[in-house]
Design a protein around this nucleic acid. Structure first.
Lengths: 214, 214
DNA sequence: GACTACCTATCGAACGATCGATAAGCTTTG
DNA sequence: CAAAGCTTATCGATCGTTCGATAGGTAGTC
């Protein structure tokens, strides 16, 4: 039963990645020791190296896997409709779902890529740029069609993304706002920022009860 | 000549703070060694300890000084007018000027306060909260007077601040956008986010030529 | 002016602790 | 038995911090 053998390895690898994500998110990559990661999964550092190549490689895999997910989800959302308003709504949902379902991972991906080696970092940044390009495309589409009114497209894209990433700082799975409420509230803010008066026919942001985050 | 003696000390202290800011901003507090700080100012680590108490204290002073400046500038801006639109414009100018005049310092203040000891951190967070309260007040004022239309005040405040802080990531003093252009562009986005149709009588955001950041 | 006393600024050297990583060998599992 | 999984013990490097020492200047006393 080959899958029985590999399952244990894969399981350990995943547990190590999860521990690394949690520690990298709360203490930062540089300040996280491999002994802490090993402790968290109940191994010695030597055993940890049986699964992981280097500390650096752990970070690289976290980044690549996460950004890969985000990018392909984003591409799906873009292909789901040619209406820029739907595209923005799709991207918002993808991004916020990603950020809210695992805020720690999102924070690592957002903040720690300076520690990758030059070569690795370039490939990771290429993934991030590809993802941001989706947003740029959606904004440009809406602007061209007259649905949005954007004075500075680059700045608006950055503002939108930064706004969404803010959620990783305060969102807690058991907080007062559900994911749906958050997505609704962000749709409202995003379309305001894009000066879009008719967000969309039916599914417009239902009044997400004004509620404090956290 | 007493001032001649103290001037040298103050000068060295400032040079050490500047070096620490630069290194903390680019490598993070945890990953910055005091030997690097000492090298940057041309001292040995032993000499550095003649001026600085601990590495931790360096960070604390950077935070307290910076947030103190930001808070008092913000309070001035709030007292400058009772019109919420002017208040928002004032806060935007203060915040962006602060972020743009020394992006490294702004980044340290924003990202590194997790390394302060419990007691220190609380006092620093109190400063930050007092500053954020200014924004909350301005937004609430505008909403009450019917000048803004805000569905979720807390979320809007966070989005605005996160948006502005984004500038610390890409702003370069010699980049293509001047500070005035950036302030103008952000005023435009902020009032869009606040759904404010009449930003203000005369001084409305003059068309900040659509221009990519960085 | 000479002598004593003190202060400022700096240094080389070293402290114990911890860092990421490895080698060699034991134990469990199929 | 062989492979997979894991441990003990250790490596050299670096961490923040402290030590004792000293050169040079300032101030006060005779």
């Amino acid at each position: 039963m080959e899958s029985g053998q590999t399952r244990k390895r894969e399981n350990s690898e995943q547990r190590i990645l999860d521990a690394a994500i949690s520690l990298f998110a709360t203490r930062g990559y540089a300040a996280t020791g491999i002994r802490q990661i090993a402790d968290k999964v109940g191994l010695t550092t030597a055993s940890l190296y049986y699964y992981a190549h280097t500390k650096d490689d752990l970070l690289l895999r976290i980044m690549r896997l996460g950004l890969g997910e985000l990018l392909s989800s984003g591409q799906e959302a873009m292909e789901g409709s040619s209406d820029p308003r739907e595209q923005i709504r799709g991207l918002l949902k993808v991004h916020l779902t990603f950020a809210a379902s695992n805020p720690e991972r999102a924070r690592v991906i957002d903040n720690e890529f300076q520690w990758l080696k030059e070569e690795e970092r370039e490939s990771v940044i290429a993934l991030r740029d590809a993802y941001e390009q989706l947003w740029a495309d959606a904004i440009a589409n809406g602007d061209r069609k007259g649905l949005f009114e954007v004075k500075n497209a680059s700045l608006t894209r950055l503002a939108l993304l930064e706004m969404c990433n803010g959620a990783t700082h305060w969102f807690r799975p058991n907080g007062p706002m559900s994911l749906e409420q958050i997505v609704g509230a962000f749709e409202d803010m995003a379309f305001a920022l894009l000066r879009c008066d008719e967000p969309l026919s039916g599914a417009s942001a239902l009044e997400a009860a004004a509620q404090s985050p956290q």
